[in-house]
Write a protein that binds this DNA or RNA. Structure first.
Lengths: 133, 133
DNA sequence: ATAAAAATTAGAGTTACCTCTAAGTCAAGA
DNA sequence: TCTTGACTTAGAGGTAACTCTAATTTTTAT
């Protein structure tokens, strides 16, 4: 059982943010000890690392919430039957597919932006390199 | 001279936003008529369209502010000498170069996100397609 | 025993970019 | 003349994802 400062150091997420994640329901309620201080289980920490992975994929906190709090595969296997596992995975696949589409749109937008900027830069460079300037 | 509702319709930018742009110094102060209502010149409108172009390149309002309020090339030519024109264009080139670098970083991040998501989707698909499931 | 460090909560502040509300002024049409 | 509609301003509200403050309590070290 780990206190918030340790979890913060371990995960690189500030204590503020850890409490915030709990508040918005991104992570399940963490147990409190007798005097009200949070006590993170190793599973809690594993789940926070899992969330970090999802953030690395560019998912918003809202998408991660929809991804579900069932934890990692081995945990789901341990806690559920095959039908439940399948339904969790299908839900997750849907979130990821949706996000992939968003990324494709972003990619196209960036390509567009790049082209427009390069064109504009060439206009400016052309003027600067003009003889009579 | 054009009133704000016309400019809004013409440019597709809400009157709220037009006032906001003026407030943050994105566009120069617009003239007011006797009773205090804004009266946009055609040059004001051209400048707003110019800003729309810059937004289409993905520039933030802050970047656009640094881009300068000198207007479009023909306007700068009309109002300044060659040395000033050159310095304006060099300033703009710098903003665009910086932004291009940001776009490259974003592009790399998206590529990374895509790879990670596709990997994860394949893991999930693999489990779903397993015999004993 | 006492002082510093760390934890708690509720709630405010931050950034970017708007978007809207309220209260008031003003011009034009029936 | 009266009413509708457009305009003005200052300031609040909204979103995402934190980040911090204040007041208070608990833990830890000397």
């Amino acid at each position: 059982m780990n206190k918030i400062s340790d979890v913060s150091e371990l995960t690189g997420i500030s204590a503020y943010t850890l409490r915030y994640y709990e508040e918005i329901g991104l992570i399940p309620k963490v147990e409190k000890n007798g005097s009200g201080a949070r006590s993170y289980s190793d599973e809690d920490i594993a789940f926070i690392e899992f969330i970090k992975d999802l953030k690395k994929m560019g998912l918003s906190l809202d998408e991660i919430i929809h991804f579900g709090k069932e934890g990692c595969i081995s945990e789901i296997r341990r806690l559920t039957n095959d039908a439940e596992l399948r339904s969790v995975l299908e839900k997750r696949l849907k979130v990821l597919e949706d996000h992939l589409r968003k990324l494709d749109e972003q990619r196209k937008a960036i390509e567009n932006h790049r082209k427009k900027i390069i064109d504009r830069m060439n206009v400016y460079k052309g003027i600067i390199n003009t003889q009579h300037l």
